[in-house]
Design a protein around this nucleic acid. Sequence first.
RNA 1: GUGGGUGUAGCUCAGCUGGCUAGAGCACCAGAUUGUGGCUCUGGGGGCCGUGGGUUCAAGUCCCAUCAUCCACCCCA
Length: 420
Amino acid sequence: MEIKAPRGTYDIMPPDSTKWQYIDRVLRETVSLFGYSEIKTPIFEHTELFERGVGETSDIVTKEMYTFQDKSKRSLTLRPEGTASCARALIEQRVYGGVMPVKWYYSGPMFRYDRPQTGRYRQFYQFGVEVFGSKSPYVDAEVIILLVKMLEKLGLMHCELHLNSVGCPTCRETYREKLIAHIRPVKESLCEDCQARYDKNPLRVLDCKVPACLEAVKGFPYIIDSLCDDCREHYAKVKAVLEQMGIEYIQDHSLVRGLDYYTNTAFEIHIPSIGNQSAVGGGGRYDGLVSACGGPELPGIGFALGLERLLLAIDSLPGHQWPDQRLDVFLAVLDEKYNSQAMDTLDLLRQAGFKADRDYNNRSMKAQMKYADKLRARMVIIMGEDEINRGYYTLRNMITGEQMQIVQGELISRLQEILV
RNA sequence: GUGGGUGUAGCUCAGCUGGCUAGAGCACCAGAUUGUGGCUCUGGGGGCCGUGGGUUCAAGUCCCAUCAUCCACCCCA
């Protein structure tokens, strides 16, 4: 019986792994420019952290978590997202006692028991940022600017930024009443799920895609018209800064985040060309999170990018070329008896900073040339009987086909001339 | 959790209404070129036809189940 990777998981293999390295590198460089530092948290946490931090009524907590008991009967859960762990670390390490705000980023696997689909897996990869300790709308704007910049650096210039404000608990309550009043007369025509949402979390009726529901809620009141003075001002400032920076956005009145701790600014980035799972990134402000996790009242804001979806989006870019992986030098060794010289030469090449490799399977010259071609070597050094006896190297340029003989002492300097 | 599609060589797939030793292209290995890659030609290795059961003289082909995978809903990144 062959053992396979569990449902919804997959291996990232060469050559694809270089794409992942590339994406991760570009994202890290970009957040670093904005002053963010990396945080690495455990991949599993106490289940209670996610129940409190993500929201007990959310779909993630109620049906998508990988929860298990360890040998001491602790209930642990593989992290379904990154924000709760950041909040926990902030509290546990007493970071809030220091310089504010703190700006963190993380990158790694998350786990949700979902039905796998295009751009959706049970173990998937997210890259996220969090800022704790500032209420400034400029921080909201900076985070969104950063998000757009990260996508631009990956060549994703044409993304849809959806923006909304979900207000604070006070204005959300006012809005909730207005919305309920609007929906009540048409409640019977809603889908089953929405009838349940009507009682528990009516805001979520707004992002239901069932045609009957879309029709029923038509003309619904907008939450941004119910915001209190503070929230309205905050939102206006965020939008003003985005406009100043030339970032276009779509006011999306039905953008309601699924996680309970979000306040004020909410945003999502969509790339429609990758299909129905088009949200590549999303986030918002969560001023209630840290206290909900048992810490002090401390504002926060952040977002996460789905790396599988980013990769899909980059792949769908017309004419996009991933950076290619080439070998600088391949060493063709024509007889096993030259192995010890070959290892010295390899060492020399690598010390000089060249990506160098050789054949270890005692293949024929022809097979080694083919192998060098597969490895996309730019140069091949041939070490055969004549070379060893007379103290020179034969150097073949695999791109131009030129071939030359050089004395041993000049190998590195000649390669540097050719390859740099 | 709901609905639909698909499982045949490492990969992409063909195999009509059940009927000889199951095929192609690509990839891999070797040779043509006994010290030279990409092109061409020749040859070779490699399949319990996803798994289990059933119908039949006979199943890759039909039926059931199961697993996996893909697509959509849902949810989200």
